[in-house]
Write a protein that binds this DNA or RNA. Structure first.
Length: 376
DNA sequence: AACACCTTCAACCGCAACCGC
DNA sequence: TGCGGTTGCGGTTGAAGGTGT
């Protein structure tokens, strides 16, 4: 006998979600929180299977999602992490706040794969495809080269035994010292330098400093330097998202919903019920020192109770603002953008402990608003 | 304008892992 | 320990939009 389907598919809707369905799902999850996905469609009045609801929420509707193309830095991160983790998209996604495994997987298959091939790098092995005429590989030490050829888990073990340090600037040295016990990033561990210069072709010079072997499923990445000939970037160019600026639960009214650290690192798992209090989620996550490109096209909104007074592009939201927006979204029954009318039927988050209160802080990209609806 | 081909990405499917009993 | 239910993950699909002819 075949496996039982995840749900009774008779009469269940498939295919693209409608705005109405989205609203139902959002409304239900914000008022009730995440319960059993299997039971959710019935409770929410949706003709979908629970799996479909979960996917829709985690990949598209979650308020902490960033939308839009991956930034250059994110892309490099993905490449780098893929070199270590392979197709473990959820693990990769866990290092990129606001990105889902599905999104990264799609981006990898549609964009990055091609780019790497164009650059002469095998997207599977992350090693050069071309011979020496086109490619130079500079390995700074034989051991490092060996490390790269070893299975990932073996690298982990070695890394545990022989943590290596690198030249870091003074500011980072202390930080690095702290992290050394648990994780060490040796930015010199593997360097791939590719110089492509042939008859009128655009010159490319890419140096990829490979990150260290991972010690745990997650790793703190202190350094990742990828230099492009005319488009090199350094840490000075991008603002840093501190861990406290990233979506963090401030409280969890349902202790039973706290997930274990082993699963909470997944972006897909970073759902309402997965958050833990007291920032333990972040501890589990071990986010990298994130740096984002700061340009005029991306005015960041940080929904945050803390103030980032250095960044003029940052606007501050609090929970109430956000809930108001969600109310507007959910109760939007016309298209004239008139979201503020108090006479509208309102989904009430006020009295019941709102699951949204889990999101004390979150980062949204203003121009690529996380929510698929305009509720401005 | 019409058609074919290509690209993108949301959604689906099936398997594996996890969890509670 | 085994079993059944639930959730998470990664591969794949297919509709929609874009591009070329």
């Amino acid at each position: 006998m075949g496996r039982q389907p995840c749900c009774d598919k008779i009469g269940l809707k498939k295919g693209p979600w409608t705005a109405e369905e989205d609203k139902k799902l959002i409304s239900f999850l914000l008022t009730n929180g995440q319960c059993c996905w299997r039971a959710l469609p019935k409770l929410a009045g949706l003709l979908r299977c629970g799996k479909s609801c979960r996917l829709r929420w985690t990949n598209y509707l979650r308020p902490d999602l960033k939308r839009g193309l991956l930034s250059e830095y994110e892309e490099k991160m993905v490449i780098d992490l893929h070199a270590q983790l392979g197709n473990r998209w959820s693990k990769i996604a866990s290092h990129l706040p606001g990105r889902t495994d599905n999104e990264i997987k799609n981006h990898w298959n549609t964009h990055i794969k091609k780019k790497l091939k164009k650059m002469g790098i095998d997207p599977i092995t992350h090693k050069p495809l071309f011979d020496n005429q086109h490619t130079q590989i500079q390995n700074q030490s034989q051991n490092q080269n060996q490390n790269q050829n070893q299975p990932f888990l073996e690298q982990q073990e070695q890394s545990n035994q022989t943590p290596q340090n690198v030249d870091l600037d003074d500011q980072n040295k202390e930080k690095d010292k702290e992290k050394q016990d648990t994780s060490s990033f040796d930015s010199s561990s593997t360097t791939i330098a590719i110089e492509s210069k042939q008859g009128g072709e655009e010159e490319e010079k890419i140096i990829i400093m490979m990150p260290p072997p991972l010690i745990d499923d997650t790793v703190i990445m202190d350094e990742m330097i990828i230099m492009n000939d005319n488009n090199g970037f350094c840490t000075d160019e991008v603002p840093i998202i501190e861990p406290h600026e990233i979506l963090v639960p401030c409280s969890d009214p349902s202790p039973s919903s706290i997930s274990t650290s082993s699963s909470s690192s997944s972006s897909s798992a970073s759902s309402l019920s997965s958050f833990n209090s007291n920032n333990s989620f972040l501890k589990d996550l071990q986010l990298p020192d994130f740096e984002w490109s700061c340009n005029n096209d991306h005015n960041g909104i940080i929904i945050n109770n803390d103030i980032d007074d250095d960044n003029n592009n940052v606007a501050l939201w609090n929970d109430d603002d956000f809930i108001n927006c969600l109310n507007s979204l959910i109760n939007d029954d016309d298209d004239n953008g008139d979201h503020g009318e108090s006479s509208k039927q309102q989904v009430v988050f006020d009295n019941a402990p709102s699951p949204l209160s889990h999101y004390s802080k979150m980062v949204m990209d203003y121009s690529e608003c996380s929510w698929p609806y305009d509720f401005s």
